[in-house]
Design a binder for these strands. Sequence first.
RNA 1: GCCGAUGUAGCUCAGCUGGUAGAGCAGCUGAUUUGUAAUCAGCUGGUCGGCGGUUCGAAUCCGUCCAUCGGCUCCA
Length: 648
Amino acid sequence: MVNITFPDHAVRQFPEGITGLEVAKSISEGLARNILSVKVDNEIWDVSRPIKKDVEIKFLTWDDEGGKATFWHSSAHLMAEAIEAIYPGVKFGIGPHIENGFYYDIDFVDHVISSEDFPKIESKMLELAREKQTFVRKEVSKKDALDYFTRKGDEYKVELLQELEDGQITFYESGRFIDLCRGPHLYDTGPIKAIKLLNIAGAYWRGDETRKQLTRIYGITFPKQKELTDWLILLEEAKKRDHRKLGKDLELFTFSQKVGLGLPIWLPKGTILRERLEMFLRKVQKKAGYQPVICPHIGSVELYKTSGHYQKYGESSFRPITTPVPGEEFFLKPMNCPHHCEVYKSKQRSYKELPIRFSEFGTVYRYEQSGELHGLTRVRGFTQDDAHIFCTTDQVKEEFKGVIDIVMLIFKALDFKDFTTQISLRDKNNQEKYIGSDENWDKAEKAILEVAEESGLNTVIVPGEAAFYGPKMDFLVKDALGRKWQLGTIQVDYNLPERFELEYIGNDNHKHRPVMIHRAPFGSMERFVAVLLEHTAGKFPLWLSPDQAIILPISEKYQNYAEKVFSLLNNSDIRSQIDDRNEKAGKKIRDAELMKIPYMLIVGEREETEGTVSVRKHCEGDLGPRKIEDFIRFVNEEVTKELGDIYL
RNA sequence: GCCGAUGUAGCUCAGCUGGUAGAGCAGCUGAUUUGUAAUCAGCUGGUCGGCGGUUCGAAUCCGUCCAUCGGCUCCA
C-alpha cells in the first residue's frame, strides 16, 4: 500500500501501483473526466503512470497551467502524427508547449509547406484525436532509442539522444507516432476537440543560426470549440491595439522608405505625447538629483575603441563616417555612455561630489538586422532616456534602489501592473563575450542580486543575458499580442570607468575609481510609447493626450465663440483644437470619438449666450454644460490627480 | 541576415480560370447652417510595390529586387 497526500493534507491509502486516474476515479467520476495530468511530489506525471511510493498528489485540469501544458504538449504530438501521416519521411526536431499553445520544429525535407496546408493538417489532427489514441509511456535504453531513430533517419532525435543519459530515456507512443519525449501526456487524444494552426516560421535547429533552418508550425488547441472561438476573438481584439495601427490612426508617427528603414518619424501629435513623457521624467529626475547634459550624435572612432564598443560591434554598426582628413572616422553614437564618461572627465572629481548623475535624452543609432525591425519597438534610431550615475562602491546599492524607485514611479503613473523583472548575469562558460575582470563582474553581480533581494521585487535570474560590460536588471512588459519587450534597464558597470580611467579623489587624498550605473527607466521613448499605446489602446491619460479637448461648433455661426473658447483653453495650457468642418455635430462627435480625444466641447446657441461649453467625455458621453472656467479647473484637477505631486 | 506569407487610389478592401481596373471612407467643389457616434450631390485620384521575362495581350503566369507581416537568429 502507498500513502497519498492530497492538497488539503488528507492522507489516504491505495494499493501500490495505482495510477493518478484511478485515484481520481475513487474521488469522483467528474474529476476523473477532467484531469489532464497529475502533480506527483512536484513533478508532473501522466495520469496513467503507476504510483509506487508515498507521495503528495495534486490533480491538474484545464484550469491549471500544468494541465494546459500537458494538453498542448500532447497536441504537439498529435500534430506531428498528422504531419507524418500526410508527409511521410519528414524529420522532427522539438515540439514543446508554450505560453499559448505549442509548436513543432519539423524538417520537411523536399516539401515546402505554407499556411494553405493548415486545413488538411487540422482535419487530420481532428480525425486522429477522435480515435482517442492513448499515450503510452515506455522506458527505453539509450541503445534501443538510438537504433530506432537511426533506422528512421531522424538525425535531430539522434542528436538529442546522444546528450541524454542511459536510464532516463522515455518514448511516448500515440497511434502510429513514436517520439522521444520526457512527457507527461494526456491519457488519450480524446479531449483535444478544437484545433487551430496559427502560423509558420523558420527556426534554426537548436537556435543556432549556423545550423539548418527547420519549419516551425505554431498551433493552439482547446477542449471545447467555444474556447477556441473566444480565443480567436480575443486575438482579433488584441490586433486592434497594435501600436503600428494605432500610431497611424491617431497620427502619432510614421515611417518612410525614403528617410530610411527603421527610422521613426514623429508626427506633431506623437511629438506632444513624447514630450509630455520626457517632461515628466525630467521633473522626476530633477528631484532625484540628476543633471541634464547634451552630447553630439556622433563620436570619434577613438571614443568607441576606448569604450570597447568598436571591438564588440564595429562590424554590425552603421559604417563609420569619414571626413576629408585621411584616416579620420566618426561613428553615429550607438550608446551615450562613452560620451558621459567624457563629461565626467571634464574636470577633477572629489568624493564629496559623488554620486554624480548625468542624464540625457540621447538619440542613438544601431544597425539592426532588417528582419528584426518592428514598428516602434525595434528600430535603427531611437532616443534613450539615458543617465549614468558615477558613485563609490559603497553607494552602488542605494543608487540602484533609487533607480528602481523611478521605474516603479513611472509604472505606477501609467498603470503598468503586469511587468516582470529580469536579472541578467554573465555566462561563465563563455567568458570571451565579456570585457572586464572576474573580480569586477563578481562585485557587480553581487550588488544587483542583493538589491533585488532587498527590494522585494519578484525577479527572474537569467545567466548569459548580461551586457558585454556588466550585469543588468531589466523590466519587461508584454505587448498586445503577448510578446515581451524590455523597457526599463539598470546596469552596473565596473569596466567602463576602468577603460576611461575615471577617477575621484577620496577622503584619504588618494585616487579611486568610481562605479558606473547605466539606466533608462523608459528604455527608449520609441519602445515605451509603443507599449504604452498597446497598453492604453490609444486612450491616454489626460496629461498625455496630444489633444485634451476638441471644440465642436454646431454650425459656422458659432465659429467666433469656438475661437474664444479655444483661446481661453490655450491660455491655460490645455491642448485643444476646433473642428470647423462643415459637418453636423453627430459627425464631428463620431470622428472625435474615433480619434480618442478625451473631451468634446459642443458649442452652439445655448453655450454662447450662457458662456458655457457642453462637455462630452470620450467613451462615456454627455456630462452636460459647464462654464468655460469650470471646465479649465476640472481639467487641471484631473491632471493633478493623475500625476500626484509631479507638476508639469 | 534566414524561413514563409503578403504588396491594387491617402485608408480599408473587391477584381473567377490572363482580354489594358472597381467600392466604401478620406480629399476637393457645391448645396445644407446643422445639438451628442456618419447630411446630400458632383468631382478628383491608381503606368495594380520596382525591374525583367512568357504571351497577340499581364494586376492576374514566371524570375528577380524592394518593402511589409509572422517567426528564427541578433539586440551595446
